[in-house]
Protein backbone atom coordinates (compact mmCIF):
# COMPACT_ATOMS: atom_id res chain seq x y z
CA UNK A 1 0.00 0.00 0.00
CA UNK A 2 1.44 3.34 -0.94
CA UNK A 3 2.32 5.56 2.02
CA UNK A 4 0.07 8.35 0.72
CA UNK A 5 -2.92 6.10 0.69
CA UNK A 6 -2.12 4.69 4.09
CA UNK A 7 -1.78 8.11 5.68
CA UNK A 8 -4.95 9.28 3.96
CA UNK A 9 -6.72 6.23 5.29
CA UNK A 10 -5.58 6.49 8.87
CA UNK A 11 -6.41 10.19 9.04
CA UNK A 12 -9.94 9.56 7.75
CA UNK A 13 -10.29 6.65 10.15
CA UNK A 14 -9.20 8.82 13.08
CA UNK A 15 -11.58 11.64 12.13
CA UNK A 16 -14.52 9.25 11.77
CA UNK A 17 -13.68 7.61 15.06
CA UNK A 18 -13.60 11.00 16.78
CA UNK A 19 -16.89 12.01 15.17
CA UNK A 20 -18.59 8.80 16.22
CA UNK A 21 -17.30 9.01 19.79
CA UNK A 22 -18.26 12.66 20.12
CA UNK A 23 -21.51 11.78 18.38
CA UNK A 24 -23.47 14.87 19.24
CA UNK A 25 -21.79 17.09 16.61
CA UNK A 26 -23.28 15.30 13.63
CA UNK A 27 -26.68 15.16 15.25
CA UNK A 28 -26.66 18.83 16.03
CA UNK A 29 -25.96 19.74 12.43
CA UNK A 30 -28.84 17.58 11.22
CA UNK A 31 -31.17 18.99 13.86
CA UNK A 32 -30.22 22.52 12.90
CA UNK A 33 -30.92 21.69 9.26
CA UNK A 34 -34.37 20.33 10.08
CA UNK A 35 -35.19 23.22 12.42
CA UNK A 36 -34.30 25.91 9.88
CA UNK A 37 -36.52 24.24 7.29
CA UNK A 38 -39.37 23.91 9.78
CA UNK A 39 -39.17 27.65 10.50
CA UNK A 40 -40.11 28.51 6.92
CA UNK A 41 -43.70 27.21 6.89
CA UNK A 42 -44.13 28.99 10.23
CA UNK A 43 -42.76 32.17 8.70
CA UNK A 44 -44.40 32.27 5.29
CA UNK A 45 -47.58 30.35 6.13
CA UNK A 46 -48.61 26.74 5.54
CA UNK A 47 -50.17 27.26 2.11
CA UNK A 48 -49.03 24.21 0.06
CA UNK A 49 -48.63 26.14 -3.20
CA UNK A 50 -46.15 28.61 -1.76
CA UNK A 51 -44.22 25.85 0.03
CA UNK A 52 -43.94 23.84 -3.17
CA UNK A 53 -42.68 26.91 -4.97
CA UNK A 54 -39.93 27.67 -2.42
CA UNK A 55 -39.08 24.11 -1.34
CA UNK A 56 -35.83 23.72 -3.31
CA UNK A 57 -34.52 27.14 -2.27
CA UNK A 58 -35.35 26.64 1.39
CA UNK A 59 -33.69 23.23 1.57
CA UNK A 60 -30.57 24.56 -0.13
CA UNK A 61 -30.29 27.66 2.03
CA UNK A 62 -30.75 25.52 5.14
CA UNK A 63 -28.06 23.12 3.86
CA UNK A 64 -25.71 26.07 3.30
CA UNK A 65 -26.26 27.37 6.81
CA UNK A 66 -25.79 23.94 8.39
CA UNK A 67 -22.62 23.33 6.38
CA UNK A 68 -21.30 26.69 7.50
CA UNK A 69 -22.22 26.07 11.11
CA UNK A 70 -20.44 22.72 11.20
CA UNK A 71 -17.30 24.14 9.64
CA UNK A 72 -15.63 26.04 12.46
CA UNK A 73 -14.68 22.90 14.40
CA UNK A 74 -12.84 21.36 11.44
CA UNK A 75 -9.38 22.58 12.41
CA UNK A 76 -10.18 24.39 15.65
CA UNK A 77 -9.77 21.42 18.02
CA UNK A 78 -6.54 20.34 16.35
CA UNK A 79 -5.31 23.93 16.58
CA UNK A 80 -6.14 24.15 20.27
CA UNK A 81 -4.62 20.86 21.40
CA UNK A 82 -1.43 21.13 19.34
CA UNK A 83 -2.29 18.34 16.88
CA UNK A 84 -2.21 20.82 14.02
CA UNK A 85 1.49 21.54 14.59
CA UNK A 86 2.18 17.83 14.35
CA UNK A 87 -0.01 17.37 11.27
CA UNK A 88 1.89 20.16 9.55
CA UNK A 89 5.13 18.46 10.58
CA UNK A 90 4.30 15.00 9.22
CA UNK A 91 6.34 14.11 6.15
CA UNK A 92 3.20 14.18 4.00
CA UNK A 93 1.94 16.94 1.74
CA UNK A 94 -0.35 19.06 3.89
CA UNK A 95 -2.79 19.39 0.97
CA UNK A 96 -3.40 15.65 1.15
CA UNK A 97 -4.10 15.78 4.87
CA UNK A 98 -6.49 18.69 4.39
CA UNK A 99 -8.32 16.74 1.73
CA UNK A 100 -8.62 13.72 4.02
CA UNK A 101 -9.97 15.86 6.85
CA UNK A 102 -12.44 17.53 4.51
CA UNK A 103 -13.71 14.21 3.18
CA UNK A 104 -14.14 12.90 6.71
CA UNK A 105 -15.95 16.10 7.64
CA UNK A 106 -18.29 15.74 4.68
CA UNK A 107 -19.00 12.09 5.59
CA UNK A 108 -20.00 13.11 9.11
CA UNK A 109 -21.94 16.31 8.35
CA UNK A 110 -22.73 16.57 4.62
CA UNK A 111 -23.91 13.03 4.10
CA UNK A 112 -26.44 13.09 6.98
CA UNK A 113 -27.95 16.25 5.45
CA UNK A 114 -28.46 14.46 2.15
CA UNK A 115 -30.07 11.53 3.93
CA UNK A 116 -32.66 13.63 5.76
CA UNK A 117 -33.35 15.97 2.82
CA UNK A 118 -36.16 13.83 1.24
CA UNK A 119 -38.00 14.04 4.55
CA UNK A 120 -37.77 17.83 4.45
CA UNK A 121 -38.85 17.90 0.82
CA UNK A 122 -41.90 15.97 2.00
CA UNK A 123 -42.61 18.54 4.71
CA UNK A 124 -42.37 21.32 2.14
CA UNK A 125 -44.75 19.57 -0.22
CA UNK A 126 -42.21 19.18 -3.02
CA UNK A 127 -43.45 17.41 -6.11
CA UNK A 128 -42.23 13.86 -6.69
CA UNK A 129 -40.25 14.76 -9.81
CA UNK A 130 -37.85 16.89 -7.76
CA UNK A 131 -36.63 14.29 -5.26
CA UNK A 132 -34.08 12.51 -7.42
CA UNK A 133 -32.51 15.73 -8.68
CA UNK A 134 -32.51 17.21 -5.18
CA UNK A 135 -30.51 14.25 -3.91
CA UNK A 136 -28.14 14.37 -6.89
CA UNK A 137 -27.63 18.12 -6.58
CA UNK A 138 -26.98 17.89 -2.84
CA UNK A 139 -24.60 14.98 -3.39
CA UNK A 140 -22.61 17.07 -5.87
CA UNK A 141 -22.97 20.38 -4.05
CA UNK A 142 -22.36 19.65 -0.37
CA UNK A 143 -18.79 18.33 -0.91
CA UNK A 144 -18.00 21.63 -2.64
CA UNK A 145 -19.37 23.45 0.38
CA UNK A 146 -17.10 21.40 2.65
CA UNK A 147 -14.07 22.12 0.45
CA UNK A 148 -14.70 25.87 0.38
CA UNK A 149 -15.64 25.90 4.04
CA UNK A 150 -12.31 24.26 4.91
CA UNK A 151 -10.51 27.34 3.57
CA UNK A 152 -12.57 29.57 5.84
CA UNK A 153 -12.09 27.22 8.80
CA UNK A 154 -8.33 27.39 8.29
CA UNK A 155 -8.29 31.16 7.90
CA UNK A 156 -10.12 31.93 11.14
CA UNK A 157 -7.84 29.90 13.43
CA UNK A 158 -6.79 32.11 16.31
CA UNK A 159 -9.11 34.98 15.35
CA UNK A 160 -11.43 36.79 17.70
CA UNK A 161 -15.15 35.95 17.32
CA UNK A 162 -14.37 33.24 14.83
CA UNK A 163 -17.90 31.89 14.38
CA UNK A 164 -19.49 35.04 12.95
CA UNK A 165 -16.33 35.80 11.01
CA UNK A 166 -16.46 32.41 9.29
CA UNK A 167 -19.94 33.04 7.96
CA UNK A 168 -18.93 36.41 6.56
CA UNK A 169 -15.98 34.82 4.76
CA UNK A 170 -17.53 31.74 3.23
CA UNK A 171 -21.21 32.44 2.63
CA UNK A 172 -20.47 34.70 -0.40
CA UNK A 173 -18.29 31.92 -1.83
CA UNK A 174 -21.17 29.44 -1.42
CA UNK A 175 -23.41 31.43 -3.77
CA UNK A 176 -22.57 29.65 -7.07
CA UNK A 177 -23.31 26.26 -5.51
CA UNK A 178 -26.59 27.59 -4.13
CA UNK A 179 -27.68 29.03 -7.48
CA UNK A 180 -27.00 25.91 -9.52
CA UNK A 181 -28.24 23.57 -6.82
CA UNK A 182 -31.61 25.30 -6.58
CA UNK A 183 -31.81 25.82 -10.32
CA UNK A 184 -31.29 22.08 -10.95
CA UNK A 185 -34.22 21.16 -8.72
CA UNK A 186 -36.43 23.93 -10.10
CA UNK A 187 -35.72 22.75 -13.63
CA UNK A 188 -36.75 19.20 -12.70
CA UNK A 189 -39.94 20.51 -11.07
CA UNK A 190 -40.90 22.36 -14.25
CA UNK A 191 -40.09 19.33 -16.45
CA UNK A 192 -37.02 20.98 -17.95
CA UNK A 193 -33.71 19.12 -18.28
CA UNK A 194 -31.54 19.56 -15.19
CA UNK A 195 -28.39 18.01 -16.65
CA UNK A 196 -26.67 21.35 -17.40
CA UNK A 197 -26.94 22.47 -13.78
CA UNK A 198 -25.80 19.08 -12.49
CA UNK A 199 -22.85 19.18 -14.88
CA UNK A 200 -21.91 22.66 -13.70
CA UNK A 201 -22.18 21.45 -10.09
CA UNK A 202 -19.80 18.59 -10.96
CA UNK A 203 -17.48 21.11 -12.57
CA UNK A 204 -17.52 23.24 -9.43
CA UNK A 205 -16.81 20.14 -7.36
CA UNK A 206 -13.83 19.13 -9.52
CA UNK A 207 -12.42 22.66 -9.49
CA UNK A 208 -12.92 22.73 -5.73
CA UNK A 209 -11.13 19.39 -5.31
CA UNK A 210 -8.21 20.68 -7.34
CA UNK A 211 -7.86 24.15 -5.81
CA UNK A 212 -9.34 24.30 -2.31
CA UNK A 213 -6.89 21.98 -0.53
CA UNK A 214 -4.02 24.22 -1.66
CA UNK A 215 -5.64 27.34 -0.28
CA UNK A 216 -6.55 25.59 2.99
CA UNK A 217 -3.03 24.20 3.37
CA UNK A 218 -1.53 27.64 2.79
CA UNK A 219 -3.90 29.05 5.40
CA UNK A 220 -2.97 26.33 7.90
CA UNK A 221 0.76 26.91 7.41
CA UNK A 222 0.40 30.56 8.25
CA UNK A 223 -1.87 29.71 11.18
CA UNK A 224 0.76 27.57 12.97
CA UNK A 225 3.46 30.14 12.33
Amino acid sequence: MSPFFQVFNSLIKRELRLAIRHGADSWMVVMFFVLVVVLFPLGVGPEPGILTRISAGVIWVAALLSAMLSMDRLFQTDYEDGSLDLLVLTPQPLELLVLAKTIAHWLTTGLPLIIVSPLLALLLNMEASGYGVLLAALALGTPTLSLIGAIGAALILGARRSGVLLSLLILPLFIPTLIFGVSAVDAALTDLPSEPQLLILSGLLLAGLALCPWASAAALRQAVE
Binding site: L155, G158, A159, R160, S162, L169, A215, Q222, A223, E225
Partner: peptide, 23 residues
Protein backbone atom coordinates in the same frame (compact mmCIF):
# COMPACT_ATOMS: atom_id res chain seq x y z
CA UNK B 1 -12.87 42.06 8.98
CA UNK B 2 -10.42 39.16 8.65
CA UNK B 3 -7.48 41.56 8.40
CA UNK B 4 -8.38 43.08 11.75
CA UNK B 5 -9.53 39.91 13.50
CA UNK B 6 -6.15 38.93 14.92
CA UNK B 7 -4.15 40.33 17.81
CA UNK B 8 -0.97 39.88 15.85
CA UNK B 9 -1.10 42.12 12.76
CA UNK B 10 1.05 39.88 10.52
CA UNK B 11 -1.35 36.96 11.02
CA UNK B 12 -4.28 39.05 9.83
CA UNK B 13 -2.33 40.31 6.83
CA UNK B 14 -1.48 36.83 5.64
CA UNK B 15 -4.89 35.28 6.26
CA UNK B 16 -6.62 38.16 4.47
CA UNK B 17 -4.18 37.89 1.56
CA UNK B 18 -5.09 34.23 1.07
CA UNK B 19 -8.77 35.13 1.26
CA UNK B 20 -8.46 37.82 -1.40
CA UNK B 21 -6.76 35.38 -3.79
CA UNK B 22 -9.48 32.80 -3.20
CA UNK B 23 -12.00 35.58 -3.72
Amino acid sequence: VLYNAFDEPTRGARAAAILSIVG
